Amino acid sequence: MRTALRLARGWSQREAADRWNILWPAEPKTDKAFSYWELWPASTGHAPPLDVLCQLAELYECRVADLVADVADHRPADILHQHRQQLAIVEDPTTSMDDLIARLGSADVHELAAMATTWVRGDSSGVSRRSLLLKISAALSLASASSAPTEETAAADTAGPGAASDDFSGIWHSRYVYPSTGRRKDFTGEHYVVLRQQGQRLSGQSLPHSTGSRMRLDLGLDKAVATGTWREQTSPTGYYQGAVYHGTLQMVVDPAGRRMKGMWLGFGREFTINSGEWHLTWCEANVSKQAQRAYHKKA
């Protein structure tokens, strides 16, 4: 490019050196200096220092970047650059839905989280991308838990309460592990939850917690697997000061139907995707007001 920009002016190396010397007589150069700069990055050339590149840019009336456009480009190794390139493809209106699905399908959750973070930080419009992303994540969570039913599960849903082979209604002890980035360690959250079953659907609401935290579960049963969403409003006086978090959850039900174990997934404060273990343990089937009071503020 250093040769091309000189030739675009119709100058020989000697003429370029002469014009340099007119502009900067205190720093005279010869045609040999221009030859060395133009041969670089070959082994026979010399790398021009930054101040020389700035003066060449002034001489050729171009950008400094134009002078080194032919040398190695290491931007593809930059994760942020990769995410911006991927986002450019996603945001391109000419990208087909099939291409978009293929590109998203080839990325893992951590790459998707990083892309989402880059997109949110690039917000320059009047729309809050952070709020929009939270809305999208909630919609996707609901969609994953409410996929189109098969004929078998549809029949079970229309059969009403008690149609499932097991009744999971009752009071359950909920325990999950979550990371705290700010405190750099894992913590445990516990609640007592009233689960109510209707067909192949489970809805859960936490009982009054000692710190004021509240949680809700919405799960769909498919044989021995429960899949759905969770939502928690943290303690108003705790570390997260009443912040609301939500995400997806999938658990395996043990053969006795008295334990569920699985993993949760959700966004953290900085839009990183977090995950951890989640356990549900059956306590009792009685969900009367009197039975529930025995678990108030027990967790």
Rank of each mutant, 00 (worst) to 15 (best):
L7G: 13
A8T: 09
R14H: 10
A16D: 00
R19Y: 04
R19L: 07
R19I: 01
W20T: 03
W20N: 00
P25I: 03
D31A: 01
Y36N: 13
E38T: 10
L39K: 08
W40F: 07
P41E: 11
G45I: 06
H46N: 12
H46Q: 13
A47P: 11
P48N: 01
L53S: 06
L53N: 04
L56I: 03
L56N: 04
A57F: 02
R63F: 13
V64E: 08
V64A: 05
A65F: 05
A69N: 07
V71G: 12
V71N: 13
V71S: 13
A72W: 14
H74F: 15
R75N: 14
A77R: 11
L87G: 02
D92E: 07
D92P: 04
T95W: 00
M97Y: 14
M97P: 13
D98G: 13
D98T: 15
D99I: 14
I101R: 15
I101L: 15
A102L: 15
A107K: 13
V109N: 12
A113V: 01
T118N: 06
G122W: 02
V127Y: 11
R129L: 06
S131R: 12
L133T: 10
L133W: 07
K135F: 12
S137H: 10
S137T: 08
A139L: 15
A139Y: 12
S141Y: 05
S141F: 06
L142S: 08
A143E: 14
A143R: 15
A143C: 13
A145T: 11
A145I: 08
E152M: 13
A156W: 11
D157K: 11
T158Y: 14
A159R: 09
A163R: 09
A164Y: 14
F168K: 06
F168R: 05
S169V: 02
S169I: 06
S169Q: 04
S169E: 03
I171R: 02
W172R: 03
Y176E: 01
V177D: 00
V177K: 05
Y178M: 02
Y178L: 05
P179K: 01
P179W: 02
T181E: 02
T181F: 04
R183P: 07
K185N: 12
D186L: 10
T188D: 06
T188S: 07
G189A: 04
E190L: 06
E190N: 08
G199A: 07
R201Q: 10
S203C: 07
G204D: 00
S213Y: 03
S213L: 01
S213M: 06
M215P: 07
D218W: 07
T229Q: 06
W230G: 00
E232F: 04
E232S: 09
E232G: 05
Q233G: 09
Q233E: 11
Y239I: 03
G242F: 08
A243E: 14
A243Q: 14
Y245K: 07
L249S: 05
Q250M: 15
V253S: 05
D254K: 00
A256T: 15
A256C: 14
G257D: 08
R259W: 10
K261F: 14
M263Y: 13
G266R: 00
G268F: 04
R269A: 12
S275K: 01
E277S: 05
L280M: 03
T281W: 04
C283G: 10
A285R: 13
N286L: 05
N286D: 12
N286Q: 01
K289W: 09
K289N: 12
Q292T: 05
R293N: 07
A294S: 14
Y295M: 03
K297Q: 13
K297C: 09
K298W: 00
A299V: 01
